[in-house]
Lab assay of single mutants.
Amino acid sequence: MAAGGDHGSPDSYRSPLASRYASPEMCFVFSDRYKFRTWRQLWLWLAEAEQTLGLPITDEQIQEMKSNLENIDFKMAAEEEKRLRHDVMAHVHTFGHCCPKAAGIIHLGATSCYVGDNTDLIILRNALDLLLPKLARVISRLADFAKERASLPTLGFTHFQPAQLTTVGKRCCLWIQDLCMDLQNLKRVRDDLRFRGVKGTTGTQASFLQLFEGDDHKVEQLDKMVTEKAGFKRAFIITGQTYTRKVDIEVLSVLASLGASVHKICTDIRLLANLKEMEEPFEKQQIGSSAMPYKRNPMRSERCCSLARHLMTLVMDPLQTASVQWFERTLDDSANRRICLAEAFLTADTILNTLQNISEGLVVYPKVIERRIRQELPFMATENIIMAMVKAGGSRQDCHEKIRVLSQQAASVVKQEGGDNDLIERIQVDAYFSPIHSQLDHLLDPSSFTGRASQQVQRFLEEEVYPLLKPYESVMKVKAELCL
């Protein structure tokens, strides 16, 4: 049975990233139509530049190519590739079939990587351009969430054990800070992308030097003109047959890092959902379990974690691919890159769409948070109580021993009897502590235990987050809708 299948058929496997999760716009960027249309555009740009620099290419040939950029006979191309065992030459023939007058000058002087690699770089750039505003929107939604809850005390956790208090907004800023680093890295790697350009079979530009009869300047002009037509500021000066596969490492490393950030955020949300302090959106008709109707599973956060793990592992592909590119190139890269580049971007696209949807509907339960604080705060307040007693004339050592005994009794009630923490009640009825009984409410005010959390939130948002989001103001209103 021949390899390949009808990918629109229910009898043929289709990647869930495309069929179930990723956005239509990201799927289109990695589609065959987008790819092969870009090949034709690159052939047109090459012909236009070659004509401008004096090669015998007519206006009629150029116009014929322009008129057929979208006229792609995919069936013919597939048949040609089956016959020739070469995808680029299959599309040269297919393009030439609908451009008979231009057929002889299509791909003039070029090698397969002229269309293959340059198209990949265009796709990487455009895919990054799709991700950047999506990530900015996630940051914006979380920034709104953090600002609104900047002063809401909550129990902090280290080692997932109760620690000092923080605020809900401050905790959210930990998430935002990681995503801001990801946004900066995505922008950097996007701006650092260079075009492969017009380089020939081993990167020496020998074929173009021959076409222009040894004119170095025209060869350099050709490279520059096509690079500018493709919208790049610069091209690699040095290439082998391909652009260095280190570029793929750079791009997928940034995406993998984004995956790590999203995994951490969504894990926190899942843990908070278990504590009943916070939940992701839950639709009115949504079913959490087929057997347990009360369940409210954090399905979206779980999906993000599941896909983020996949995204983090994909960076190993370009690392290994770059390491086995012998001399000017081997074909070890080809099949692998067809999979890992598309999957990385479709996965990143999915987790950003999902995280935006989550961040637009996060639900906080202040009463649950308050109750958990009441359970733990008495123990945390013991040092403040000791200091207040010393100020009232008591002995630190005597007070410490009193607190120690009462704390152990209260802990026994919590752990052995399943009761509430009654340390404060014990202190309130103990005559030894009568000098500070009137101060206990103040000493137990949760806001006095959150330090500068709310001020940190305000400063972080104003100095770091809002300036970073400013270039994306025009796209901030787009909502994230999930079908599944």
Score class of each variant (00 low, 15 high):
residue 73 D to G: 03
residue 209 L to G: 08
residue 431 A to P: 15
residue 373 I to E: 11
residue 40 R to L: 10
residue 131 L to V: 11
residue 85 R to Q: 01
residue 120 D to I: 13
residue 463 E to F: 05
residue 322 A to D: 13
residue 158 T to H: 01
residue 380 M to Q: 15
residue 132 L to G: 06
residue 291 A to F: 10
residue 173 C to R: 05
residue 329 R to T: 07
residue 363 V to L: 15
residue 246 K to Y: 04
residue 54 G to A: 06
residue 347 T to G: 10
residue 8 G to D: 12
residue 324 V to N: 04
residue 360 E to S: 00
residue 263 H to M: 10
residue 43 W to Q: 13
residue 208 F to I: 03
residue 357 N to H: 06
residue 7 H to Y: 04
residue 70 E to H: 15
residue 444 L to W: 13
residue 179 L to E: 00
residue 458 Q to T: 13
residue 138 V to T: 13
residue 90 A to K: 13
residue 345 F to I: 07
residue 165 L to V: 04
residue 338 R to M: 06
residue 403 I to K: 02
residue 314 L to G: 04
residue 395 S to W: 01
residue 334 S to L: 12
residue 172 C to P: 14
residue 147 K to I: 02
residue 240 G to W: 02
residue 30 F to T: 10
residue 334 S to V: 08
residue 57 I to Y: 06
residue 468 L to S: 14
residue 132 L to R: 08
residue 269 I to S: 04
residue 455 Q to V: 11
residue 431 A to V: 13
residue 258 L to T: 08
residue 481 E to Q: 14
residue 422 D to G: 08
residue 299 M to Y: 06
residue 457 V to F: 10
residue 268 D to K: 00
residue 384 N to R: 10
residue 43 W to P: 06
residue 231 G to W: 09
residue 383 E to F: 03
residue 174 L to K: 01
residue 19 S to T: 01
residue 436 I to D: 03
residue 476 M to A: 08
residue 440 L to G: 04
residue 43 W to D: 07
residue 325 Q to T: 02
residue 24 P to T: 14
residue 118 N to V: 05
residue 122 I to Y: 06
residue 249 I to T: 05
residue 339 I to A: 09
residue 316 M to V: 02
residue 296 R to Q: 12
residue 86 H to F: 02
residue 413 V to I: 12
residue 93 H to E: 05
residue 35 K to E: 06
residue 182 D to Y: 04
residue 241 Q to L: 09
residue 448 S to E: 04
residue 155 L to D: 08
residue 303 R to W: 10
residue 262 V to I: 04
residue 202 T to Q: 02
residue 226 V to W: 08
residue 297 N to Y: 00
residue 116 G to E: 04
residue 318 P to E: 12
residue 239 T to N: 13
residue 138 V to A: 10
residue 393 G to H: 00
residue 378 P to S: 12
residue 240 G to H: 00
residue 409 Q to C: 15
residue 274 N to G: 08
residue 388 A to K: 04
residue 29 V to C: 09
residue 11 D to Q: 13
residue 290 S to M: 06
residue 265 I to V: 08
residue 338 R to D: 03
residue 42 L to S: 14
residue 241 Q to D: 03
residue 237 I to M: 12
residue 152 L to C: 14
residue 448 S to M: 12
residue 353 N to Q: 12
residue 41 Q to Y: 12
residue 285 Q to V: 00
residue 2 A to L: 10
residue 243 Y to A: 04
residue 145 F to K: 11
residue 353 N to E: 01
residue 273 A to L: 09
residue 44 L to E: 12
residue 416 Q to Y: 13
residue 141 R to D: 14
residue 64 E to L: 08
residue 258 L to S: 11
residue 119 T to D: 00
residue 286 Q to N: 12
residue 341 L to D: 06
residue 237 I to H: 13
residue 318 P to A: 07
residue 48 E to P: 07
residue 236 F to S: 08
residue 244 T to I: 02
residue 98 C to P: 01
residue 376 E to V: 13
residue 241 Q to N: 06
residue 14 R to V: 08
residue 456 Q to P: 14
residue 293 P to F: 12
residue 115 V to Y: 09
residue 417 E to P: 15
residue 51 Q to R: 07
residue 135 L to A: 09
residue 228 E to D: 05
residue 221 Q to V: 06
residue 187 K to E: 05
residue 259 G to K: 03
residue 86 H to I: 07
residue 20 R to K: 11
residue 466 Y to D: 14
residue 100 P to K: 01
residue 185 N to H: 10
residue 397 Q to M: 00
residue 151 S to F: 02
residue 168 V to P: 12
residue 408 Q to V: 14
residue 343 E to D: 05
residue 274 N to L: 06
residue 327 F to E: 04
residue 269 I to V: 01
residue 138 V to H: 12
residue 94 T to Q: 03
residue 321 T to F: 11
residue 359 S to L: 09
residue 471 P to D: 14
residue 332 D to F: 11
residue 3 A to V: 14
residue 150 A to C: 03
residue 245 R to K: 04
residue 163 A to V: 00
residue 171 R to P: 07
residue 322 A to Q: 12
residue 52 T to L: 03
residue 232 F to Y: 13
residue 216 D to I: 02
residue 110 A to G: 13
residue 176 I to M: 08
residue 145 F to V: 00
residue 151 S to M: 04
residue 28 F to I: 04
residue 371 R to T: 14
residue 450 T to F: 06
residue 299 M to S: 13
residue 417 E to L: 14
residue 306 S to R: 10
residue 337 R to I: 14
residue 19 S to M: 09
residue 254 V to N: 15
residue 112 S to L: 03
residue 255 L to W: 12
residue 111 T to E: 01
residue 405 V to S: 02
residue 236 F to R: 10
residue 125 R to D: 04
residue 246 K to S: 09
residue 299 M to L: 03
residue 444 L to G: 09
residue 264 K to V: 11
residue 323 S to P: 09
residue 424 I to K: 14
residue 370 E to K: 02
residue 93 H to K: 09
residue 56 P to D: 11
residue 474 S to G: 12
residue 361 G to P: 15
residue 14 R to Q: 14
residue 292 M to Y: 14
residue 367 K to C: 10
residue 208 F to E: 09
residue 283 E to Y: 12
residue 120 D to S: 06
residue 309 R to Y: 08
residue 339 I to Y: 01
residue 159 H to L: 06
residue 366 P to A: 03
residue 238 I to R: 08
residue 171 R to V: 07
residue 35 K to R: 03
residue 240 G to C: 13
residue 321 T to Q: 05
residue 453 A to V: 02
residue 294 Y to A: 12
residue 82 K to G: 12
residue 176 I to R: 04
residue 87 D to H: 13
residue 14 R to W: 13
residue 41 Q to W: 05
residue 265 I to D: 10
residue 320 Q to F: 12
residue 23 S to F: 08
residue 74 F to M: 02
residue 229 K to D: 05
residue 398 D to I: 09
residue 239 T to I: 08
residue 179 L to A: 03
residue 388 A to T: 10
residue 9 S to C: 07
residue 375 Q to H: 02
residue 88 V to R: 10
residue 190 R to N: 02
residue 284 K to C: 04
residue 458 Q to R: 07
residue 88 V to M: 00
residue 253 S to H: 08
residue 447 S to F: 00
residue 194 R to G: 11
residue 178 D to C: 07
residue 323 S to D: 15
residue 202 T to A: 13
residue 280 E to P: 15
residue 294 Y to H: 02
residue 262 V to C: 13
residue 244 T to H: 00
residue 151 S to R: 03
residue 113 C to K: 03
residue 194 R to P: 14
residue 345 F to Y: 07
residue 165 L to S: 07
residue 39 W to N: 14
residue 482 L to G: 04
residue 54 G to D: 07
residue 130 L to P: 14
residue 252 L to V: 10
residue 107 H to Q: 04
residue 108 L to G: 09
residue 159 H to W: 00
residue 388 A to G: 08
residue 388 A to W: 06
residue 153 P to Q: 11
residue 431 A to K: 00
residue 435 P to F: 13
residue 133 P to W: 05
residue 432 Y to D: 15
residue 209 L to A: 02
residue 72 I to T: 06
residue 264 K to M: 07
residue 408 Q to S: 04
residue 418 G to Q: 15
residue 98 C to Y: 06
residue 142 L to M: 11
residue 379 F to M: 13
residue 218 K to I: 09
residue 136 A to L: 07
residue 62 I to P: 01
residue 70 E to C: 15
residue 279 E to A: 01
residue 424 I to S: 13
residue 425 E to N: 14
residue 122 I to V: 03
residue 314 L to V: 04
residue 311 L to S: 11
residue 194 R to K: 12
residue 298 P to W: 13
residue 367 K to Q: 14
residue 76 M to I: 10
residue 289 S to I: 14
residue 289 S to A: 03
residue 368 V to K: 06
residue 99 C to S: 10
residue 89 M to K: 03
residue 134 K to N: 14
residue 63 Q to F: 15
residue 91 H to D: 08
residue 109 G to T: 03
residue 418 G to T: 06
residue 191 D to A: 05
